[in-house]
Amino acid sequence: MRSILKPALIMLSLLAAADAMAQAPSLAKCTRSANLLACVDADGNTYSVNTAGSTIYLRGLEAAGKRYWVQTNSRYGQLTFFTGIASDGETWVGYNQRIGWTTINRFSSSGGSSAKFTCSRITGC
């Protein structure tokens, strides 16, 4: 699995807890405004999350591979669909569905990666 896909999905799952992420220096150092969260982690990876209504725009740079990526998420109630593309041409699609405190995540990429994983506030991912 590409190293950026799972962190991007986990980031999306944690958007509801963006305040907690911005305050946890071990995860990343973040700056936030009304609808933009911009972060850099200990490895030099950078990413930002911008919201506009029910659409979420993610963008980032994977420092090790100098790979840029963007992802767009569209939320419909408890279901979020997402698509992304990276500077090396890889694309991915997927969705996550919130059911109570649990999130079911599924994605596949043009690089051959696919996964289904469940995250919970109690047990994690």
Rank of each mutant, 00 (worst) to 15 (best):
F82D: 07
E62A: 13
T31C: 01
K66P: 05
I85C: 06
L14V: 07
V93E: 15
A22P: 03
G112I: 03
G100K: 10
T51M: 06
L14T: 10
G89P: 00
A52R: 04
T102W: 03
R67Y: 04
G60T: 02
D88G: 07
Y47A: 01
E62H: 11
A34L: 00
T83L: 11
N73L: 15
T91F: 04
Q97V: 06
L37T: 03
L9G: 15
A22Q: 01
D43C: 05
A42N: 10
Q78Y: 09
S108F: 09
N105G: 05
Q23S: 12
S108H: 06
E90A: 13
D88T: 01
A16W: 12
N73E: 12
N96D: 15
F107L: 09
S54P: 10
R32L: 00
E90N: 13
A63C: 08
T102H: 07
V70T: 15
T72V: 10
N73S: 15
A42C: 00
N73Q: 13
I99C: 09
S109C: 00
I104R: 01
E90K: 12
S109L: 01
P25W: 03
G60I: 02
P25Q: 10
Y76R: 07
E62D: 14
L15G: 13
T102S: 05
F107Y: 15
S74G: 14
V93D: 15
V70L: 13
S54D: 13
L61W: 08
N105L: 04
G100H: 01
W101A: 15
A24L: 10
V93Y: 12
S108R: 13
I10T: 10
A34M: 00
R67T: 11
I10C: 13
L12I: 04
K29A: 08
